[in-house]
Simulated scan of single mutants.
Amino acid sequence: MGLEVSMQGDMYSYGVLLLEMFTGKGPTNNMFTGNVNLHSYVQMCLPEQVMQIVDPQIILEMEEEPSRSMQSSTTNISKLEACLVPVFRIGLSCSAEMPSERMSVKDVLKELHKIRNVFLGVRGQRHQDGRRNDS
Rank of each mutant, 00 (worst) to 15 (best):
M1T: 03
M1K: 09
L3M: 13
E4I: 14
V5G: 11
M7T: 07
G9A: 12
G9E: 00
D10R: 08
D10I: 06
D10L: 01
D10H: 11
M11T: 04
Y12W: 11
Y12H: 08
G15H: 03
L17V: 14
L18T: 10
L18P: 05
L19W: 02
L19H: 05
E20S: 07
P27H: 13
T28P: 01
N29P: 02
N30H: 04
N30Q: 10
M31P: 03
N35W: 00
N35C: 04
V36P: 00
N37S: 00
L38T: 06
H39A: 02
Q43C: 11
M44V: 10
C45W: 04
V50D: 14
M51T: 09
M51H: 10
Q52G: 06
Q52W: 04
Q52V: 04
D55C: 02
P56Q: 07
Q57M: 05
Q57R: 07
I58D: 06
I58W: 15
I59V: 11
L60T: 14
E64L: 09
P66E: 02
S67L: 12
S67T: 15
S67H: 15
S69M: 08
Q71K: 14
S73F: 02
T74N: 09
T74R: 13
T75L: 08
I77V: 15
K79R: 15
L80M: 11
L84H: 08
V85G: 09
V85F: 09
P86T: 12
V87P: 00
F88C: 10
I90Q: 01
I90K: 03
G91A: 04
G91R: 05
G91I: 01
L92H: 01
L92G: 09
S93D: 15
C94K: 01
C94Q: 03
M98C: 13
M98I: 12
S100E: 07
S100W: 00
S100V: 07
R102N: 03
R102P: 13
R102M: 11
M103H: 03
M103G: 06
S104F: 02
V105F: 05
K106N: 12
D107F: 07
D107P: 04
V108M: 06
L112F: 00
L112C: 12
L112E: 08
V118I: 15
V118R: 12
L120R: 12
G121W: 06
G121N: 06
V122Y: 05
R126K: 15
H127E: 12
H127Y: 15
Q128S: 14
Q128W: 14
D129V: 11
G130A: 09
R132Q: 11
R132A: 04
N133Y: 04
D134V: 05
D134W: 05
D134N: 14
S135F: 10
